[in-house]
Computed example of a mutant assay.
Amino acid sequence: MSGFLGEFLGTMVLIVLGTGCGAAINLKKSYAKGESWLYVSLAWGMAVTFGVYVAANFGSQGHLNPAVTIGFACFGFFPWSQVLPYLAGQFLGAFVGALLVMVQYYPHFKASKNAEEGNSVGIFATGPAIKNNVFNFLSETIATFIFVFALLNLGDFDKGLKPLAVGLLIMVVGQALGGTTGFALNPARDWGPRFAYTIMPVPNKGGANWAYAWVPMFGPLAGGIIAAALQAVLK
């Protein structure tokens, strides 16, 4: 239960801060509307940092990400017996985090009548800058590979100041590699909020673009597994 609870609370914090940034820069009459990609990358980096701190304090390792959990488990860096509780916590935490952002910005969703005014699933989930399924998949795979490989070489990344290093890693991955697909890196981060946007009564919402959703699911999983495989071979 500590693994589930830590991952649930940590991922909830991650998504509130991350998708909250998405709402802040997109929705009408928000003070932060129109802020830069640097703003986005930094916000997501700090969202991960504080999510890891919360998760660790409640007894998990602060994965917050199925690509980390499954990649680690595939090559002996994490026990398979803990995979399902971690995944359940991650997806449920992401869903609840998105709900909180919907409540926080409800008047702004009402004020933003359509996607052109900033009200779209892009607040909660990723999409490609240029739609090309093959290269979109490769973008998510490469970005997640770099993220997870660096993470594996941080050691116990939930200890001391290392969560801050994880946040800085997320930030630079976003700045360097996130311009193509929005750097999901994390199936729970994408699918939990995307599902919440699909089923909840968000004012003036559009489609959830589930036709694209396989990319932020399987691209990060592939990247995480490849990174853990390389680490296992080299170590």
Rank of each mutant, 00 (worst) to 15 (best):
L84H: 02
L230Q: 09
A150E: 01
G224V: 13
G51N: 11
V134G: 07
I226P: 06
L234Q: 14
R194I: 03
S139K: 00
A67T: 06
N26G: 14
G223F: 10
P187Q: 01
L64H: 02
F147S: 00
P220S: 07
C74D: 12
L17H: 05
Y53S: 05
V83A: 05
L42A: 13
V233Y: 15
H63F: 09
A98C: 04
Y53T: 12
A129D: 08
F147Y: 14
V173M: 06
G127I: 01
N57F: 13
L177T: 03
G182R: 01
A228G: 07
G178L: 12
F58M: 09
I170A: 03
T19V: 14
S120K: 06
A67F: 12
E117V: 08
G76N: 11
T11A: 05
A115W: 02
V101S: 00
P66T: 09
I123M: 12
M102L: 13
E117T: 11
P128I: 06
P163I: 13
P203E: 03
I170S: 08
F137I: 08
K159G: 11
L161P: 12
A55L: 03
L161N: 09
V54H: 00
V16N: 00
G59L: 05
F135H: 13
P79M: 06
N209P: 00
F137Q: 11
F77C: 05
F157Y: 15
G179T: 11
K29L: 04
M1E: 10
E140N: 08
T69M: 10
M102F: 12
A32C: 13
T180Q: 08
A56P: 07
A143T: 07
A176F: 08
V40K: 00
A67V: 07
A213H: 05
G3S: 14
Q61N: 10
T198Q: 11
A24E: 07
A222G: 04
L151Q: 04
N209R: 10
L92Y: 06
V172C: 02
G207E: 15
L185A: 01
I199T: 11
F195M: 13
A196I: 05
V233I: 15
K28T: 08
N133D: 09
F75R: 03
A227D: 06
P128Q: 07
N133Y: 14
L177F: 14
L185D: 01
V52R: 00
L42F: 13
P187A: 04
A227M: 13
L154S: 01
L152N: 01
F149T: 05
L84N: 02
V96T: 07
P163Y: 10
A73E: 08
T49P: 01
F50P: 05
E7C: 12
V148N: 06
G3T: 15
L169T: 04
L151N: 03
Q82C: 02
G34R: 06
T141V: 13
G207R: 02
F145L: 14
Q231C: 15
S30P: 04
D190A: 01
L38W: 11
G179V: 11
W44C: 07
L92P: 02
A232F: 15
A47D: 13
K235V: 15
A125V: 06
L38Q: 09
L161S: 14
F124T: 00
A228Y: 10
L138N: 02
G34V: 09
G207C: 07
N153P: 11
F78Y: 15
P201Y: 09
P201S: 10
W214P: 02
